[in-house]
């Protein structure tokens, strides 16, 4: 019998999961389940949607209403679910390639509309499932199978992208900071509008191996040493922050939510036609 959390929120008959040894995705998935447990929402009032990629296997293991959709389109399907059933808490799990490359347009427009969806991006800096191609979040000069001499593209900052496109709750954590993933997802779920949580994962199989980052443990050590909580960063010099990245709650500014606004139009027109 697995732990109570896993027993209650996972399809245990589908376990063990098929992610590579040391993949951070399992840790983040557990943290999401923990956030849902803490938020106390009825399992049947939650729908988890994913696209395609390693991360998108997560809803297969989670015991909720789940939908595994096409590459990059998880947010489009999720938008449909939320519009049809606004009372449902819709959680979208995407990878970095899924969310910011093929699904980039869906992402910015879901942010812009501030529709009540919680998007969680598992960012492992590479396309793992298809063999290690570089993604929009592969750091500049790092390698992938499609960038054997180093990637010259500048990486996206997913949180900045989402915040500037209009997401009303934005946060970042890592697989190492698993408890922070839980608290951010919990806050994100309670935000009425569009929330985005970037969860930095690790891919020892492709990104790690191609870039000589060592084992899963050393990649987690890097997360531990390079992540600075935003509250601590405020007291640090720019030199001290060199090579670091911020974690924690990066944006929290509630605004009117899309399906509520839509309902207002319906109510107004109904009134006017009477």
């Amino acid at each position: 019998m697995p732990s109570v959390l896993v027993e209650n929120y996972f399809r245990t008959e589908k376990l063990p999961q098929i992610w590579c040894p040391g993949c951070g995705h399992g840790i983040i998935t557990r943290s999401i389940a923990s956030a849902i447990e803490k938020s106390g929402i009825d399992k049947n009032k939650i729908c988890i949607v994913s696209g395609i990629g390693c991360s998108s296997r997560a809803p297969g293991y989670l015991d909720f209403n789940t939908l595994h959709t096409t590459h990059g389109r998880a947010l489009a399907f999720a938008t449909g679910i939320k519009m049809a059933k606004p009372e449902i808490k819709v959680i979208v799990i995407m990878g970095d390639g899924d969310a910011t490359a093929i699904g980039g347009n869906h992402l910015i427009h879901a942010c812009r509309r501030n529709i009540g969806i919680t998007a969680i991006v598992y960012n492992n800096s590479i396309y793992g499932m298809t063999g290690g191609q570089y993604s929009p979040t592969t750091p500049k000069y790092d390698k992938g199978t499609t960038a054997p001499y180093g990637n010259i593209d500048k990486a996206f900052d997913i949180c900045k992208l989402a915040a500037s496109a209009g997401a009303t709750y934005v946060g970042r954590a890592t697989a190492y900071h698993a408890s922070l993933v839980t608290s951010l997802v919990q806050n994100a779920i309670s935000n009425e509008g569009f929330s985005l949580i970037e969860a930095i994962s690790m891919c020892p199989t492709y990104y790690g191996r191609k870039n000589k980052k060592g084992s899963a443990v050393s990649m987690m050590e890097w997360q531990k040493n390079s992540a600075i909580n935003i509250s601590a960063a405020a007291k640090m010099s720019p030199e001290a922050l060199e090579g670091k990245f911020l974690i924690g709650e990066l944006k929290n500014s509630p605004e009117p939510e899309y399906t509520n606004e839509y309902q207002k139009i319906i109510d107004r027109l109904k009134k006017e036609s009477q």
């Binding site: 697995p2 732990s3 109570v4 896993v6 996972f10 376990l15 063990p16 999961q17 992610w19 040391g22 993949c23 951070g24 995705h25 399992g26 840790i27 557990r30 697989a175 190492y176 698993a178 408890s179 987690m220």
Partner: peptide, 14 residues
Amino acid sequence: CELRCPDYAIYLRR
């Protein structure tokens, strides 16, 4: 260990 096990293979006894 339970918090960071990606495979849910170790957990605390209640």
